[in-house]
Amino acid sequence: MPLLEFSEKGIYCSQADCFIDPWRPVKKALITHAHSDHARSGHTQYIATKDSVPVLKHRLGSFINILGLNYGEKILINGVSVSFHPAGHIIGSAQIRLEYKGEIWVVSGDYKLEHDGISIPFETVKCHTFITESTFGLPSFRWQQQKTVFDEINNWWNKNKEEGKVSIIAAYSLGKAQRIIQNIDPSIGNIYTHGAIENTHEVLRRQGYNIKQGLKVENHTKQDDFQGSMILAPPSAIGSAWTKKFGQYEEAIVSGWMAVRGIRRRRNTERGFVLSDHADWDGLNMAIKNTGAEKVYVTHGYSEIFARWLTEQGYDAGVVKTEFTGDEETDLQQENQVPV
């Protein structure tokens, strides 16, 4: 029997009797990271990295039964050695390594190779079998360095400021929002953050992350005070009555999907910046190669296409069907929650 199987509830290890990122309530759940399509509510016990415990409690309730592990720390569950390793996706995100009788499997969760300046960078974990995400598993997706993208964002912000406009970026409160506030140029103007984002940031600050403080949008703040500033808001707030108080503004979406003109146009957004917390085509291929794995399972994205490509590259590759399909729409909702 293989160490991991693919069940209706998620990836399952029968030897340890635990699931990885299951989407139905189970007894023991190993959680790669705190995004809602990976960390669902209702499990009896959660095991995750120490870094993601506060956010998981913030999102799922302080009462959840959760065990936090350091990166690289090994625990034994019925003879299976389980450890969490940096995935570089968001703060606290991990790949999960399972070893039993000398056989090693790694479940990647979501990951990216580029260091974003906040989350602990991706670490290669050698294994026999690698279960990889493939959200951007097409050769059309290749990212520029984040510095280049932030230069573009800063230029856009500057230009809007010169025209007397406010800049609004739709950013998912866990992941994108931190990456943006830590990397944009604060000398351009004031940065305001929406309450939903600030709440997450407060949780991260309490656990020791030095996330920059954004100004609060108060009811009594005057329209003039916003002029030339940057507003970070969850996508659900974009286009709502909330944005009316800013007067004239430009809005942008920051996501890997913005590489596709058709999707950009469909969102009817004026600006799309191509920046993702997922690995691009080259990143996926490199990560897989570096694991030394012979067997690769592909999930969460263009799985069939990517698995066929890997097979042609000499891997023994297969597809894992999941309920979180990692398609553009749900992922954009997930990363950016943009209303269509």
Binding site: L138, P139, S140, F141, R142, A259, V260, R261, G262, Y302, I305, R308, W309, E312
Partner: peptide, 26 residues
């Protein structure tokens, strides 16, 4: 030029939905 098989190009094209753009990205 991109050193990928033609089938992969075709699949990518059908997802990107625009030939000129697909080529420029690949």
């Amino acid at each position: 030029e991109a050193n990928i098989p033609l089938w992969l190009f075709e699949h990518t094209y059908h997802i990107i939905g625009d030939l000129a753009e697909t080529i420029s990205l690949i």
